[in-house]
Amino acid sequence: MYDTIVIGIGGMGSATLWELARRGQKVLGLERYDLGHSMGSSHGFNRIIRLSYFEHPSYVPLLRRAYALWRKTEELAGEQLLFITGSIDASREDGRVFTGSLAACKEHGLSHEVLGAREVNSRFPGYNLPDYMACVFQPEGGFVASERAILAYAALAVDAGAEIHAREKVVAVEPGQGRVAVITDQGRYEARRAVVAAGAWISDLIPGLTMTAVPERQVLGWFQPIDPSAFKPSVFPVSNIAADHGHYYQFPSWGIPGFKIGKYNHFKEHGHADELSREPRPDDEAALRLAIRDLFPKADGPTLRLAACLFTNTPDEHFVVDTLPGHPEIIVASPCSGHGFKFASVMGEILADLATTGESKFDLELFRYARLAT
């Protein structure tokens, strides 16, 4: 009998496991693959973090806390996990990326600059944005070392007394009065609470999300720059660029010596997480090359690496973070839709609060389960 069982030890699950363990709970973490695997949504070295949140201004208070907790985690783990480069959000002047980013900056008093495309290109030589773009530069953006962060949280959790079982697939979560049973391919466990942070497999365990938490195949690419000096973290901010031919996200060279780029919603390939291909194809690379040649021509060198990962998209692209209606012993955790990892540190705190008290000090109204469940 455990206090809490955490299902899925990726970004959210690992942080939650640590938060619960440090509070003295008897906790079990269950992971269907290896710890730190590359089958889900958090591999590929790093993930963007940014304060000027075009998706919705209500994310900003969560992000402020996330930054503070990432720094605290660095101190405890003894390694840097959060890297500051500044961030650029760019689109047409009436586009969602520019207007949403600017609105978040103004509502929350974030330091920022509104720049034209030519100003961005002059200040940051790795960029070649077209004149039609309007841009918000926010100096506190950057990236989190996602793979290292998961392992750091897992190590901290184990040191605090948590138990982790990798290579053990959860097949069912059965609620009961005041407790929950978790059935795996190797056994049965009971706890007072269960946090379901299963990523792209969440609807296998929470069937009400089958039609509204939909896995989507993504592909990331790393390319050797023609001019490596233009893509170092000191001179190349992370970015979200909504161009006329697609919405792309970019990182400086870090981890391996290559510029990193991805395209939101890629080819819109949806399906069950077990059925979506993890093998990159020539057309995946071609889609990324289109953006490189148009927007980042100094990065148009040899391919260094391609990797597939999974988004889990909701219709409104907001998270699902809530207790399961009628079953408060089950906490649903799907900070998803391609923009969740940066929140892992604060989500660990929020999910631990929901598991221990049933409440959070943050406004989670945007993330309620009932808006999506079928």
Score class of each variant (00 low, 15 high):
118 R>E: 13
232 K>M: 14
226 I>N: 13
247 H>I: 08
38 S>H: 14
108 H>G: 01
264 Y>T: 11
350 I>D: 01
257 P>F: 10
17 L>T: 06
165 H>C: 13
57 P>E: 06
61 P>M: 06
21 A>W: 02
227 D>H: 14
209 L>D: 09
213 A>T: 04
350 I>C: 01
99 T>M: 13
229 S>L: 15
170 V>W: 00
104 A>L: 05
146 S>N: 02
296 F>E: 08
15 A>G: 03
73 T>P: 00
361 K>G: 12
39 M>K: 13
298 K>Q: 14
99 T>I: 06
102 L>E: 13
31 E>C: 07
140 E>P: 02
158 V>I: 15
52 S>A: 15
41 S>N: 03
189 Y>Q: 07
373 A>M: 11
130 P>V: 02
308 A>K: 09
309 C>G: 02
195 V>F: 03
80 Q>W: 00
9 I>A: 01
362 F>A: 07
75 E>R: 13
210 T>H: 11
325 P>H: 10
46 N>G: 09
32 R>I: 11
224 Q>P: 06
277 S>A: 10
235 V>N: 13
128 N>V: 08
235 V>T: 15
217 R>V: 05
74 E>I: 00
335 P>K: 00
132 Y>Q: 03
160 A>V: 08
139 P>D: 07
309 C>Y: 09
132 Y>S: 07
194 A>Q: 10
81 L>Q: 01
319 F>K: 04
11 G>C: 12
91 S>N: 06
292 I>C: 02
342 K>I: 03
260 K>D: 04
93 E>K: 15
261 I>L: 14
4 T>V: 15
345 S>N: 04
324 L>Y: 10
310 L>C: 05
279 E>F: 08
28 L>T: 00
276 L>Q: 07
117 A>C: 04
297 P>K: 04
23 R>M: 12
174 E>F: 02
87 S>M: 12
226 I>T: 15
193 R>V: 13
169 K>I: 12
30 L>D: 01
159 D>G: 10
322 D>Q: 09
157 A>F: 02
37 H>F: 09
86 G>H: 00
280 P>F: 00
1 M>H: 11
74 E>D: 02
93 E>N: 10
88 I>T: 03
89 D>G: 13
